[in-house]
Each structure stands twice: as structure tokens, then as C-alpha cells.
Design a binder for these strands. Structure first.
Lengths: 352, 352
DNA sequence: CTGAAAGCGCTAACAC
DNA sequence: GTGTTAGCGCTTTCAG
């Protein structure tokens, strides 16, 4: 390994001179800097980040912690952040938690010991106290989900509004029995989405606890089971709004498996907007979220925060708004087409 | 920052004892190790990797370099690798190239100066000489695309077989004019896929250069344009096989935009297998690739390679096999349903 | 303008 | 078993 000492020896100057020349210290003469750079290039000098980091400087690493990178949401975030941070010479590291607190803590530990400049994370449902303690000791931003125990910065979506939009849309189409399938309430996002759904329905006096289905997004079967249970109800729903990307996936799959005719038998509003959603039937009516923009804003703020380091950052919450993308999986409920009756028989038939 | 000295002070022992206890050195008594770990947890000690690295050890970082993490292919790879490497305490860093050689080189430089233990990369079409030089100086594995100038290890798919499978399927269904839309030949994968397509068709004496469309996968519009041009041909194809995930996306979009009835007017075989592909019409017939398995195998081999470090690794190539997933976008071509005629008029109508 | 020297936190050789 | 000591490559006082 070639060090500043090697280049100092070649130039017959001290190591500190070389160090300063490389750091573009104003006290060093232009001529010296010139020579140092020449020799450095010549003998192929590469700064040793490890040594530099030991002197207190943090690395150019930024930790990104998400549940599962395969989820379109999170890969979009990773992409946007990577692009944004790269401009300032930062490198993103990727950690996946699978929503497991213990795994999450392990990752946070690892990242701290790797001397990351900070972390951007989608926190799991309930952080371990130790994780909170560690995070508080360094720059970090929460994405999407908000853990109030952390305080600090949060960039998220208006989750209750997104579901309110979806419900409102179905109400306007004349639906009265509108079901919800979404993430568990433990997640801040899950709680907000459920609230958005519930409040909107309650305001219309159409709320029915039986139509609420909350379950883990990482359980691939939850959405399918939930849909089947809803359809088996004595008075099944005529519309379903989804509160998660994974849930949307599994509900679409189940609709296809059961042979349900959408939107004739059932109206559906999805959550999120990935390419495949356009392709189902006449296109999935869905809630579109500005995920990429959100992540970019988060990245920019993160960089800003690093520059401001000394002063503790004030609390800051940024909320981005969803929009409803009306496509082909929702339709007006006319008195002549009572969706319930035919649906159940078809579902039963297909399931057996 | 809490260091081994802090915990040494609390225990009234020397720093080296603590260091050894943490490193599970056999010379340290079990009781001592026990106590050290307790105190470490209590005061929240995290090892300082920078200091460790300075002692010669390379970091626990592994660089992953892909064109675009939003691509389902690459996020699947990132997930599998992350899971695999995590077991051995390695952390994945994420770098996106957008298939830009210069960006790629920058990333490689950055990663080297960050002291990564090695890199796993999907190389761009033609690596810069400097990139080759740098990569050769450290453990690395190529994924999917193969750059022969690098030598070394490669984990990829049997690209020509995948396209051969697709073409064979359509030939058996009676198709005679089968078009191809895929990545440019500059990419090793693009070249192989085109070859698979071409060889299979030539063997059946049905090859027609006009039906080959190769273009950059990062150009979102290429697939759509290619499809339109094919359909505008005097003798348009009755079937299309795709050679890339992005191309599949855009062709599906264009089919929907043009209102083409698939498979009645046109049979289509997609490339790759993401959730959304199941949802289009009766499901997209597609080539399924064992991407996750491939990445895991690659990760395992990478770890193996790190352990063997001293000896230069021999050349090694691993080829995984694709399978054809027959769903609803391909059908037999019967003499009574000449696909060409109605298709063109519909396409024209929809386009204007 | 430049040099000498003192560490950063950890590991490893060498003592006891 | 455990303590002492000497650095790893770099930055950063403090002296010239």
C-alpha cells in the first residue's frame, strides 16, 4: 500500500506537508501542491479512508434500512436516494429488516460500527429501545413510517388522506359496503390508513367493523385470505380498498384465482402504482404516491442536515400527498346490479 | 464514542484483555468474556471498524453495481445477495450505473477507496480499460452480463436457450413470422439472446432480418416503437418474443395502447417473471429465470472466494437455465385466423 | 511556509 | 490468563 509517507520520501518533505497539500491547505505553496499531486498520481496513491475515518471524520456511507428491497416502493426509494446522495459523493449501503426488530438492531449496530455518516430508515413496527438509543446518537431520517419515540425528522405520505380518497371515490359511485384490507395497526402507516378509511366511512354512516381486515404485509397469504373471508360474509362488500402494495398484489392474484369479474362484481381500489397495475383488466384504479419525489426530498434534507451537523436538528415532518388514479376496476353501483349475490356464488364455486 | 478502553476501565482490566475477550480469544477465561460482554452491552459499545480496518483487515463491505435497482431483476438480486452475505457479517453497498461507463468507473473507484472486500457487478456494455485494471486488482464476480476482458468469475443465465425456448414454443403453435424485440447486441446478454432467437428460426428456415429489433433497454420508448414498426410491415409478424424485462414492459403497454387483442391477433412471449406479468389478460406467457437462485449461488461463491483469497481464483462460469411459463398470451395459429390483416387496421386506427 | 510529535481505536507481538 | 507496548495512515496541534 502506498501512503503519504512514500510520496513524502520521494519529495524529501515531511508527511504533514504532503497531507496538507492533498487537503488543499492554504498554507502550502502552489508549487508544492503541484509536485505532490504529480508524484501521487505517478505512484498511484489512494487515500486510506480507514485512517482518515479514525481521525473522527465520518465515512461517505449512508445506511438505507428498508423491509424488503424487492418491494417496488423501496426500490424506487433506493434509486432516488442513490442518485441524490451520489452527487455529493455519498454511497448508499443497503440493509433489509423483513420487519424484524432484532435484525433491524443488528443492522443499526453494523452501520454505526462501519462509521456511516447517517441513516435513512423505514422503521419496523416497534423499535427496540436499544435501537432508539443508538439512532438518537447520529443523523437519521425516518421514511414513510413514523416512530414517535425517535423524534427527529420524518418524510412520509398523507396515509389517512390516501385511504379517504379511495373510500370517497367508491362512496360517490354509490357503494355502501366498502371493505378495507391493509397493514396491521402496529405500523404508523397502517394505523393512519385505517383511520382514513374508517373516518371517511363513519362520516357517511357506513362503517362496519366486520369489513376491516388488518394483517402483516409480509404475510403473502393474508390478503388472499382476507378477501375470501370478506366475500363469505352474509352481506359481502361491493367494493374493496387496499392499504398496502403487498396486499394489492395478493388481492389481485386472488381475484384472478377466484374468477371474480372486476369491476362488475366487485370494485377495487389498489394501493401504490407500479407498472403491472396498469395491466390488470381495464387497469387497476389505485392510489398513486409520489414515492420518488419523497425520497429525493428526503435525500436533499439529509445532506442539508449533515452540513448543519453541530446544532441538533429541530423536529421536522414532511407530508406528501397521494392522488387517486381512476382506471378500470371501479364502477358505479346501480340498483339493477346488486353485486353481492352473484359474487358469492362465483367465489364459492371457484374456491371448491 | 465508547471504546474498549471505557469498558476496560469499568472492569479494571487492560484494553487488550477486553479486545481479546471481544474477539473470543481462547486465552481469555469464560468468566472474563462474560463480564466483558455484559459491560459492553450495558454501556452500548460498538466496535470501531475504521480502527480495525487500519490494522490491515479489509472492510465488511461488498459493492453491488447494477444498472438500475428499480428493475425487478436487480432488486431480486440485491435482496438475495443481501440475505446471503449478511449471514457472514457482510454489508452490501449499492451503486447504480445507468449503463454509463464513466459512472461505473467512478463507482468502482469509490468502492475501492472505501476498502470494500470485493464487488459483484452487472458490467456495462463495454468497460473502460481503467475499470478493468482496477477490478482485476480485487475480488469480483460478474453477474448476468459477461465481460470477457475481465476473465474471472461469472454467474449468468443461458440466454440463448431462453430465447430458443420462446421461439420453439411459437413455432410449435404454427407461427411462421416471429419477431424479436430485445436489448442491443453490445451487451453480452443481448447478443446471446439474439443468437438464440436467430439460430432457432434459421434452423426452421423462417428467419427474416426485418423481424429483429434490438435497442437499448434503458430507452423506455424503444419497445413501443419497435412494436409499431413491426406491425406496420407489409407482412407483419404473428408472434413476438421479447428479450428483456424493460422491453416486455413497454411492449405490453403498447399492446394496451393500440388495443391489440392478444393472443387472438398477436402472440407474445415475455421475458422475466414479475408479479404484474400474471395479471395481463389471461397472463403473459413468459420466460422465467432463476434470478434469486443465481444471486444466492453467486453470493455463496463470493464468500468462498474471499476465504481462498491468497491463491488467485481460477476462471469459473456458472450458467443457470430458464424455463418457459406458458400462460395466456400465446395461441395456436390456425389457417382460419390470419392474424396479420385485422391487426394492422386496428393498430392504425388506435394510433391515430 | 514547513516539520515534529501526538494521538484516533484497535490488534498483535512480547512479556510476566 | 492478563498486562505492556508498539504501531497501522492519517490529521492536527504546536513549534519553528
Amino acid at each position: 500500500m502506498v501512503t503519504i509517507k512514500d510520496i513524502a520520501a520521494r519529495l524529501k518533505v515531511s508527511a504533514s506537508t504532503v497531507g496538507r497539500a492533498l487537503a488543499d491547505d492554504p498554507r502550502i505553496s502552489g508549487a508544492m501542491k503541484q509536485k505532490v499531486h504529480e508524484v501521487a498520481n505517478e505512484i498511484g496513491y489512494v487515500a486510506n479512508r480507514a485512517a482518515r475515518m479514525m481521525r473522527g471524520v465520518s465515512s461517505n456511507l449512508v445506511g438505507l434500512i428498508v423491509p424488503d428491497i424487492r418491494n417496488n416502493f423501496y426500490s424506487t426509494i433506493a434509486h432516488a436516494l442513490s442518485k441524490c446522495l451520489e452527487q455529493d459523493g455519498f454511497q448508499l449501503t443497503l440493509s433489509e429488516t423483513d420487519d424484524d426488530r432484532a435484525v433491524e438492531l443488528r443492522h443499526v449496530r453494523e452501520l454505526i460500527s462501519a462509521n456511516v455518516a447517517g441513516m435513512i430508515l423505514v422503521p419496523s413496527a416497534k423499535l427496540l429501545p436499544e435501537t432508539v438509543r443508538l439512532l438518537k446518537s447520529m443523523p437519521h431520517i425516518q421514511l414513510l413510517r413514523e416512530q414517535s419515540s425517535l423524534g427527529g425528522q420524518w418524510f412520509g405520505l398523507d396515509d389517512s388522506k390516501s385511504l379517504a380518497l379511495a373510500v370517497e371515490h367508491l362512496l360517490q359511485l354509490g357503494h355502501r359496503r366498502i371493505a378495507y384490507i391493509g397493514p396491521s395497526e402496529e405500523l404508523s402507516t397502517g394505523a393512519s390508513r385505517l383511520k382514513g378509511y374508517r373516518d371517511e366511512l363513519k362520516a357517511a354512516h357506513r362503517w362496519d367493523a366486520q369489513l376491516e381486515m388488518c394483517g402483516s404485509p409480509s404475510d403473502a397469504d393474508f390478503g388472499r385470505d382476507a378477501l375470501r373471508r370478506l366475500l363469505a360474509l352474509p352481506k359481502p362488500p361491493t367494493g374493496v380498498v387496499l392499504g398496502g402494495v403487498q396486499h394489492t398484489h395478493s388481492v389481485v392474484d386472488e381475484c384472478i384465482a377466484l374468477g371474480i369479474r372486476v369491476p362488475d362484481e366487485l370494485s377495487i381500489v389498489g394501493y401504490g402504482d407500479e407498472a403491472g397495475f396498469r395491466w390488470w383488466g381495464a387497469g387497476l384504479t389505485t392510489i398513486s404516491l409520489p414515492v420518488s419525489e419523497l425520497a429525493t426530498a428526503c435525500g436533499l434534507w439529509f445532506l442539508h442536515q449533515l452540513r448543519q451537523r453541530p446544532a441538533a436538528m429541530p423536529r421536522y415532518r414532511s407530508v406528501s400527498s397521494p392522488t387517486l388514479l381512476v382506471r378500470g376496476t371501479t364502477r358505479a353501483l346501480t340498483p339493477s346490479s346488486p353485486a353481492a349475490a352473484p359474487k358469492r356464488t362465483r367465489a364459492r364455486a371457484a374456491a371448491t
